[in-house]
Design a protein around this nucleic acid. Structure first.
Lengths: 199, 199
DNA sequence: GTAGCTTCCGAACATTCGTTCTGTGTCATC
DNA sequence: GATGACACAGAACGAATGTTCGGAAGCTAC
């Protein structure tokens, strides 16, 4: 019996406690701190547990041999609406290797800005007041893209369109007028995504 | 002269290199590694630089005296739509101390799941196909909240409403019917936010 | 020039790190 | 009731950590 590789089980609470610690401090603690965190009094046992988390993909090592979060550390239960429900098994994250919402939304951190949306002029594009718009800062954009433009010294979020060889800013709400900027149209950046908090 | 506290200047490249290292490994390296990273050959000087970053709010310490990212470490340009535009100064992030989109959206990591939205039945609530729904997993919800329910073994995102003492699931799209579940209504969780990528 | 900063190097040092090895108690199995 | 996993404790140890201190080189100011 037991020839089949039966992985040693890990206390799932250990991982949760580590994740909580990490989400508070953004750092993996030392073995002694981990021991305290887990209610263990032997570093040797911490070492053993770390090895198992490492094999499971939750922890990893930097090239400098420092402990760091592994590929699955930030894994959240990601579920496809189409996926069969009721399954508590780890097969949920099929195909997806989502790391962080930040990483998913922000591709070029140094060129990304966050703009809080004011008003409901883009409501038909699913952009609500209070949403956090992820914007890639760049001075130009293509027609059809949602851009953050600077009009009258204020940020405006609108569709970029062309009318009779002139750029116009089109809201996604019939109650608002199309903006036809006189002279140069100053573009702050292009919308790359958004985040909304509803609770 | 120079009685006014003139903070010692820091090489901004140092911070960028640290941020790059962190975004790759999700961990703050040791002083010796930092020395290599910064092209410095004395740990004592690294120690000095770290102290300055700490005073500037970019680095901090855990209660266990381990170095960790400070409040300003993850700072992004956050702009309010109402704010006067054209300003490249750091005063943009007035009032807001936004850390990470993740932290902004996810309050309880261990109870948070991500659900990819299928279909357009909630389009009028600004929820599009392909959006990533941030869901707080819990077996019950209040009337009026947007919930992820399990109907016919599939996830469904809908408003939770009450009709004649019975819970119903209401889409935000006139083209879809109200779902009246027979028997118990199984709730997976409550919507807490969403993330959308458009580029 | 010389006095005073600032930037950086190098060595010394106590502390803490993670590993290894041995030991103990508790199960389930035959 | 002997055996062997398994989950943990405890001590011991070299290696690595971060701090402290002294010093060297460069710049500025008077």
């Amino acid at each position: 019996m037991a020839l089949i590789s039966q992985k040693p089980q890990l206390d799932p609470q250990y991982l949760e406690k580590l994740q909580d610690y990490y989400s508070e401090h953004k750092v993996i603690p030392s073995y002694s701190v981990l021991a305290g965190l887990w209610g263990i009094s032997a570093k040797s046992w911490v070492s053993e547990c770390v090895k198992r988390f490492e094999e499971a993909g939750f922890l990893d090592w930097t090239p400098d041999k420092q402990l760091k979060p592994g590929a699955r550390f930030f894994e959240r239960k990601l579920a496809d609406s189409t996926v069969q429900a009721g399954l508590p098994n780890p097969a949920i994250s099929d195909g997806y290797d989502l790391i962080t919402i930040d990483d998913w939304l922000v591709k070029i951190p140094s060129k990304t800005a966050l703009v809080r949306v004011k008003g409901d002029s883009m409501i038909d594009a699913g952009i609500h007041e209070g949403d956090l718009l992820v914007v890639e800062v760049q001075p130009n954009a293509n027609v059809g893209e949602i851009v953050v433009a600077i009009v009258d010294n204020e940020f405006t979020v609108k569709y970029l369109q062309k009318e009779r060889n002139e750029f116009v800013l089109k809201p996604a709400n019939k109650a608002y007028p199309v903006i036809r900027p006189k002279g140069r149209l100053e573009i702050f950046g292009v919308m790359a995504g958004l985040a909304r908090r509803t609770r």
